[in-house]
Design a protein around this nucleic acid. Structure first.
Lengths: 196, 196, 196, 196
DNA sequence: TATGAATGAGCGTTCATTCAT
DNA sequence: GATGAATGAACGCTCATTCAT
């Protein structure tokens, strides 16, 4: 399995750095190879083509993302709490890795439609996590019983994503994680939070 | 003034169609010229370069956007109503022009960072409209007095944008405009709507 | 006759200025038209094409050149004297018109082979003047009787031309005309000048 | 070192042929690549850009030129003799390579000012060789003690260059090398040669 | 005569991918 | 497995010239 060989991850990490530093359109395969310390041709022993590097990058990083968030959610009872730690961790992971933040919020969006559709597939697992939380919230009466899960998920993801993008575009100069509670508050209200 | 000459708009409309049909990276200048029914060189009598076509496209279309929405907002008293017609019109304009929807939600995002920064400048006017509505809602007691305008605006724009993008990615197969009231409801709650 | 209409000369003078200021490859027809104060299309009422402007320019200016030099030569008896005034006037005319000097020594040489062959035709009249002086000098015993006229003419023209080109390349920062006597001395010796 | 790889010289030789056959402005990179038997892209593994091919061409060929002439000069005692073998070899090298003669005398002069300034740098070494010979001739009493080295060098180079150019323009139809003694005789006299 | 908007052919350069070693 | 030299398709832009007014 190529995914477990050291050069596989080595190339993906190189790609993140090269894309963050040079931008998507200046991230040539040869630059990634150089950064990874391998020959250009070696890339093609681990990846089908350049697009495959980017999809794999997204899968690999988003996998960690989902894993981490599943972890922290597991420890919480209420949907509202789960939503909070999800937002916090989403913000924290990207705060902790400046390169990754630039790559996911700005650079990877320059990829073509096909690639973005594939990236969306990867995102689905994450979106399903949100759906689970929302369903739970509705079921246990935390949220509005008539809430549309799809719309609510679009609101949550759209808001989180827009918040991170604005932060990256402002050169990450304020503390993103500190915004989590306020964003959480907004979204909870949007979901028609009941109770005090 | 070039902007008022017929070929100016002709070329921009051609660009929208060509980009929607072929994708951003396959929208060669020669294709746009052909679609517009002019020679390649004619493009350069009206635009400085290819990037200039795209920026102008965005300015031109987003200008209509802002104008139209300013219009419909003017007729409304309450912030909540204004927000509703804003969402409705946002959805309607893109619903009515499938090509434009594809271009703004998918294709233009593939442009490089420079172009996107310029596009963001154009967007600002639209975002300021939102800020005005939010401020008004806070002032007249419709919304939570402690609402952060920046965060709320990110929620509104993020949600609207994500909703449209999801719709476009699903090949525009359901009625987007019909979603407006539900989205509006969500966002109003997010803003801490008061009143009966 | 187009040559006598005011716009004909107007365009040629504009070409000299535009070429001197912008260089041969940046001297577009539209720039020349603008400098001449006429429309692009008007150029083509007076000249067949762009090349025709340049050939005409050379003919016109070189005509003045030959005329002037024929004039000053007429007043001299000896071949050596004629050669001196020829060199002096060659240097003087180009010293007096910086633009023209740049155009003939640097810019026009960037034209293609065809154009340069035509320019050479124009030059011929000037070279024939030199031949006449040389023949005269041989006939009246001033120069070596075995002197090859063709070679001597190549020496004279080559030396004069190289001297002017070096001066132009050095930004015309020294006095070219002052060099005439020394150049004359060199060339006379080369021609095997007899007598004291 | 790229200069020693076979393809480097292969491309330069191809450039000489293509430029001589098609003219400077019709010497497209793709033509040069085809003539060299390599892919277009390969050119750019050895040269920074098209201009770099031309500068390198000049350096490479002019280097051989200077080397060869330094060689033959070394065997001679007197300045006059050195001048003769210099002229002979200058003529011989260009006589032996018709393509090169066309390229240096006609085609390369069409390059823009920047390129020609760089070419001039390369030429400088050759001109310094001439200066050395002239200084030597003055020092050992062969030449006029009051001779201006700069002017004399301009005469020598101008005459040689004009002679070769005339020969090339006449389609190289006579024997250039045979002209060397006569040209030499002229130039020696120009330098004020003493003694028999 | 004079205009100037419109034309459209033409080319240097990049870079993902291959394959002989 | 690993290399890196070689490949070649693809495209934005310029500008001399035309021609309807």
């Amino acid at each position: 399995m190529k995914r477990n060989k050291p050069k596989y991850k080595q190339i993906i990490d190189a790609a993140v750095i090269v894309i963050a530093d040079n931008g998507y359109h200046q991230a040539q395969v040869s630059k990634i190879a150089k950064q990874a310390g391998v020959a250009d041709g070696t890339i093609y022993l681990y990846f089908k083509n350049k697009e495959d590097i980017l999809i794999s990058l997204f899968q690999e990083k988003m996998g960690l993302f989902v894993e981490k968030i599943q972890d922290v959610i597991a420890g919480k009872q209420k949907a509202a709490e789960k939503l909070l730690v999800m937002i916090e961790n989403h913000f924290k992971i990207l705060s902790d890795d400046h390169h990754l933040a630039i790559v996911t919020q700005l650079e990877l969006r320059q990829s073509n439609k096909d690639l973005r559709l594939k990236i969306n597939d990867v995102l689905k697992e994450y979106l399903l996590l949100m759906d689970d939380i929302l369903q739970e919230g509705i079921d246990n009466g935390e949220f509005d019983s008539k809430l549309s899960i799809r719309l609510a998920r679009q609101m949550i993801f759209g808001t989180i994503d827009e918040t991170v993008t604005t932060w990256v575009m402002n050169d990450q100069k304020y503390d993103l994680v500190k915004q989590a509670p306020a964003v959480h508050h907004l979204l909870l209200q949007g979901c028609g939070q009941k109770g005090e």
